[in-house]
Amino acid sequence: MHEEALQTQRLVAREGGTILTPGPLDVTDKDSVRSWTKAAVDAFGGVDIVYANAGAVRSEVIEPQFYEDFASTVRAEPDSARLMVQAAWPHLVRSRGCVVMVSSTSGPSGSPTSPRTAPPARKGAVIALTQQLAAEGGPHGVRVNCVSPVMINTDGSRATLLADDHPMYDIARHVPLGRLGTPEDVMNAAVFLTSEESAYITGTHLVVDGGWSAGLPGATA
């Protein structure tokens, strides 16, 4: 088991919870997703919440970009989210559960500081999928929403989009709240969308961006 999985297991156990790590999962493979979901249902008796947050990026600006890179990036995220929700759907209907997907501030708009064509396409598809599934799930009491963060301060982003030679490296000073988002910021929004406090919210994307989308993209702070 990877060290990250072991650390998560220890954190969950420390809070009195139980975590299942049934092995490798290919979120783009229907059979793999179904087996993984069945393992969870067998262990816990059902599914109450699906948090769909997986993706892969191989993308550049439109002129030099290979179509294969664009297509694989665009397919990976909405496909994986759809497969996961589809596998869990009968159990969500029984539990009147909820789904939280992850989009981005790039989903509803483009960005001159991040000239990549695939991410907005895939993130926009996640928002559209969220709204359609919310419409289908409503009669069953299943709520479907997504969170749309701006740049989040993680190991991965610090090594790529926040590197000194990337156009977005100084994005924090353009965010009205004056800082990058944290994983905890996104987590808190997702927890809200799965709680009873959001019982009348479905089909929306909750923007978690420190006010970024409230101003002009790229404007000097």
Rank of each mutant, 00 (worst) to 15 (best):
E77R: 14
A134E: 03
L83P: 00
R34V: 10
R158G: 06
K30C: 08
A190D: 00
D29Q: 07
T130L: 12
V102C: 13
A13M: 06
T154D: 07
P78D: 09
A88Y: 01
A219V: 10
G137P: 04
N145G: 04
E68W: 01
A71Q: 12
S104D: 03
K38E: 12
A71D: 14
T73H: 12
P217R: 11
T130S: 14
I201L: 15
A190T: 06
V144R: 07
Q65W: 02
A172E: 06
L6E: 12
E197R: 13
A39E: 11
E15W: 02
T37N: 04
K30E: 15
P217F: 08
V33N: 08
Q132C: 12
I127V: 15
S104Q: 03
S104L: 05
R10Y: 00
S157Y: 00
E63L: 13
R75I: 04
S148R: 08
V74G: 05
N188F: 12
P115M: 05
W212P: 00
C146D: 06
T37G: 02
T117E: 12
H166R: 15
V57T: 11
A81W: 05
S114A: 10
A5F: 12
D165M: 09
E68P: 01
E4A: 08
L25E: 02
A125I: 03
R96Q: 14
E197L: 12
P78A: 10
S32P: 05
M101V: 07
S109C: 00
Y200K: 06
E3K: 13
S106F: 12
E196S: 08
E196Q: 04
G137K: 04
T113Q: 15
A39G: 09
T113N: 15
P24A: 15
N188I: 06
E15L: 07
Q7H: 10
L162K: 06
G110L: 13
L20W: 02
H2I: 01
Y67Q: 09
L216P: 07
L92Q: 04
E3G: 05
N153G: 02
S95W: 00
A5D: 13
G203F: 02
A76D: 07
P217G: 10
G137H: 03
G46F: 01
F66R: 14
H166T: 09
G23A: 04
Q131P: 00
V142M: 05
G141I: 13
D48V: 01
G156V: 10
G124T: 05
V57G: 01
P120F: 07
Q9W: 11
T105K: 06
P115W: 02
L206K: 08
D165S: 14
E184G: 12
H166C: 12
H166D: 15
A13D: 13
D170G: 06
T194E: 00
Y51V: 14
D209V: 02
A221I: 09
G17Q: 00
A5R: 13
A81G: 09
H205D: 11
S213Q: 08
S35Y: 00
M187H: 11
L83V: 00
A54K: 03
T117A: 15
N153A: 10
L6S: 07
